[in-house]
C-alpha cells in the first residue's frame, strides 16, 4: 500500500489538528480523558452550541469533526463508524440525530462542520480562557455581528459605488465595441454598393 492510498483511509478534516494532544490529567488516565471528551462531544451534538473552557473545546472539536465526517463518508451501515458513534455519543438517541439530521445537513458542506469562537471570561473569576463551540447551521441567532445585510454600512457603501463605477465602465466598453462593429458593417455595405455600381456600369457599357 503506497502513501497516497494510506492518506485516503482517514478523512481529511477541515480544521487544524494539533500535532500533540492535551493530556487532561486525571486519576483514570487516558480513559478518563476520553470520558471527559465523550461528554463534550455528546453535549455538542445535543445542544448544537456550548460554552466551555478553551482547551477542552479545541480538543473535543477534533473528535466531533472526525465523527461527523466519518458518518458522511460511510453512512450508518458501516460497522466501524457505528461503533465509533456508539462510543462517542453517550446518549444513544443522539446516534439517530447524527445520521438522520447532521449527515443530510453537512453532506454538501465545503467548510468545517463546527465553528469555534473565543469567549470572554467572567470578571472577576477564574482565569481560564473560554470558548464557544457550535455546529454550523444551528437554529440560534449568529454570534458574530452581521456586516453584510445592512447596505448603509461604510464598507457596503464603498463596495456598492465601486460596483456601479465598474458597471458603467463595462457598459461604455460594450457601447464602443458595438459602434466600431457598426462602422465596419457600414463600410462593408458601402464597398458592396461600390462594386455593384461598378458592375452595373460595366454591363451598361
Amino acid at each position: 500500500m503506497n502513501q497516497s492510498e494510506i492518506s485516503h483511509l482517514v478523512s481529511k478534516l477541515r480544521i487544524k489538528v494539533n500535532p500533540r494532544l492535551r493530556k487532561f490529567r486525571n486519576p483514570e488516565g487516558p480513559l478518563g480523558r476520553l470520558k471527559k471528551l465523550q461528554k463534550t462531544v455528546t453535549a455538542l451534538i445535543k445542544h448544537e452550541r456550548i460554552e466551555l473552557n478553551y482547551p477542552r473545546a479545541e480538543e473535543a472539536r477534533m473528535y466531533a469533526e472526525r465523527l461527523i465526517s466519518d458518518a458522511i463518508r460511510h453512512g450508518d451501515c458501516h460497522k466501524t463508524t457505528m461503533e465509533n458513534a456508539n462510543f462517542w455519543i453517550t446518549e444513544k438517541q443522539l446516534i439517530h440525530k447524527l445520521f438522520k439530521v447532521l449527515v443530510p445537513r453537512f453532506e454538501n458542506y465545503h467548510t468545517s462542520y463546527t465553528r469555534m469562537h473565543r469567549a470572554p471570561r467572567p470578571y472577576p473569576g477564574p482565569l481560564d480562557k473560554k470558548a464557544v463551540l457550535e455546529l454550523r447551521g444551528n437554529p440560534y441567532p449568529s454570534l458574530i455581528p452581521d456586516n453584510i445585510s445592512n447596505k448603509h454600512l461604510i464598507h457596503n457603501v464603498l463596495l456598492d459605488e465601486a460596483k456601479k463605477e465598474y458597471r458603467a465602465l463595462k457598459y461604455a466598453e460594450i457601447a464602443a465595441k458595438i459602434e466600431s462593429e457598426e462602422k465596419v458593417v457600414l463600410q462593408d455595405v458601402n464597398l458592396v454598393k461600390d462594386v455593384t455600381s461598378k458592375v452595373e456600369d460595366n454591363v451598361k457599357m
Binding site: 455581528p145 454600512l153 461604510i154 464598507h155 464603498l158 463596495l159 465601486a162 463605477e165
Partner: peptide
Amino acid sequence: GVALPRSIILNHVAYSIIEER
C-alpha cells in the same frame, strides 16, 4: 486615502477593490 473602522473587518479581496478605486 481609504480607511475602515476597526470594528468592520473586510476580507482582502473586497478591500483591494475599494483600494483600487
